[in-house]
Every structure is written in structure tokens, then in C-alpha cells.
Computed example of a mutant assay.
Amino acid sequence: MSLIFWTQLLLIILFALFAYLILKRRSYMFISGFATRPEEEQKQLIDNGYPQGVGRLFLIISAGLLLLMPLELTGFRYTFELQMAFMMLVLFGGLIILSRREVPYKRKRAFLTSVIMTVVVIGGTTVLLFIGAKQPDVTLGGSAVEISGMYGEEIPYSDIRSAKLLETMPKIHYKENGFGFADYAKGHFSVEGHGSSLLFVDRKQSPILLIETTNRPVFITGVNPDETKSWHTELDQRIR
């Protein structure tokens, strides 16, 4: 079983467990900040249905994550990403709705806090995904290959042992320090048969340019296959 599978399973179990404890056992202390509220506020929140709403919110998230899991069996490649998007939208959207069940003098602040959190987290995640999914700019200069963008670096031709095209990307074991989303991988990853490697790849693309250097292997894909092939042709000429 993959790490993603166990992550999916853990999230489903955790949200289901918290939903059970809140809705069935009435263990409201598991709700963030509830235990530190004055007893009068706690009673008012319970009367307003706030903790019950949080429990139902967790139950919806757990059920949604579970229902989305079978998509992997259909060959859909973005099941985990879809689950994370569902979780964030339901969680932050639910918190905005639940702010109406706060104690009266805290409702406005709770609503504004929830909206700001939603904008910052979802907006920040969107920007990060956009930057991470952007293909690298590769410049073959007079003495080195320059890869710009996130995790970019300059590789002198003297450090390059070989450059070849691969039809498929070798299996990626785990991320060391990088960005991974859907088929995009940028940064430092452990790759089967190559060890610690630097990746700038869209794994659904073919071919993939593999540059073997004295430091580490580098895998790159362009905007389209023709760009990747042109990099290989020019680079091969320069390192002969």
C-alpha cells in the first residue's frame, strides 16, 4: 500500500472518530477552544448547536473522503488531490456557516476570522499550485545549463556526464525537499534506480530528459515533447 493510501485512511478514521466523540459521546473538549470558554459560553454554544454542527461537519468530511476513494479504481489520477480540495472547501465553508451559531457578541469576529482563513489558505494553496505546476525555463548558455524557477539551478557542462531521453519516468519513492502535486514534481526526490534526484517533471509527458551530472541526476520535461527533444539535441551537441 502507498503512503497516499495510508494518509487517506488516517484522515477518514480521524474525522470519523472526532465526529463520533462529539456527536455520540458529547466530548466537546475536542473542539478547538471550547474547553477554555467560560461555562456560560459553553452552555450557550451547545444550545445554539455549535458543537453538534462541528461534529456533523467532521462526519461529512469523513464520509466524503471515503466515497471519493473508489475513484482510484477507475484509473482517475487525481483522487487524492480531489479529496484534499473537498476537505478544505467543506471545512472552511462549514466554519463560515457555523460562525452564525457563535455567542452573539463573537459572531462578527468569528465570521471575519473564518473568511480570512479561507481566503489565505485556499488562495495561498492555489498560488503555490500554479507556481509549482509551471514548467521550468531552460537556457543553454555558453558554459552551463540554467534552469530557472522553483528549485532551479545552474549546471556547468563540465559536470554533465550524459543526457538521454526516457519514455517513462522511473518510480518516485518519496519527496526529500520539493513540491509534488498530481503529476507534477519539482525539487529533490528519491527515484528508483537513481537515488536522490532533482526533478522538474510533468509525469504524464513523454519523453523525459535525464541529465546525469557529477552531483545528482536531473529529470526535466518541457511544455511539450518537441521542447524536451530540442533540449536534448542541443545539450547532446554541447557535451560531446
Rank of each mutant, 00 (worst) to 15 (best):
M1Q: 12
S2M: 11
S2Y: 12
F5T: 15
Q8K: 13
L14N: 10
F15P: 06
A16E: 08
A19L: 01
A19M: 00
L21V: 07
L23H: 09
S27P: 04
Y28L: 04
I31W: 04
P38V: 02
K43T: 13
Q44H: 10
D47Y: 12
N48S: 11
Y50I: 12
F58P: 05
F58M: 13
L59S: 10
L59C: 02
I60M: 12
A63R: 03
L65H: 02
L66G: 09
L71A: 03
R77T: 11
Y78F: 15
F86H: 00
M87C: 01
M87F: 04
F92C: 08
P104N: 02
P104F: 02
R107N: 06
K108T: 15
R109G: 06
F111C: 07
L112I: 15
T113F: 12
S114K: 00
V119M: 05
V119L: 07
V120P: 00
V121W: 00
T125M: 13
T125W: 13
V127K: 10
L128I: 14
I131R: 13
K134C: 04
Q135M: 13
D137H: 14
V138N: 05
V138H: 05
V138Q: 08
T139C: 09
T139D: 14
G142K: 15
A144Q: 12
S148G: 09
Y151C: 06
E154Q: 14
E154L: 10
D159T: 12
R161T: 09
R161M: 10
S162E: 09
K164F: 07
P170L: 00
I172W: 04
G180H: 13
G180I: 08
D183W: 09
K186R: 10
G187P: 04
H188E: 14
E192D: 10
G193T: 02
L198D: 00
Q205E: 05
S206W: 12
S206Y: 08
I208N: 02
L209E: 01
P217N: 03
F219W: 01
N224G: 01
P225Q: 05
E227P: 13
T228P: 07
S230F: 08
S230R: 15
L235G: 02
L235T: 00
R240V: 08
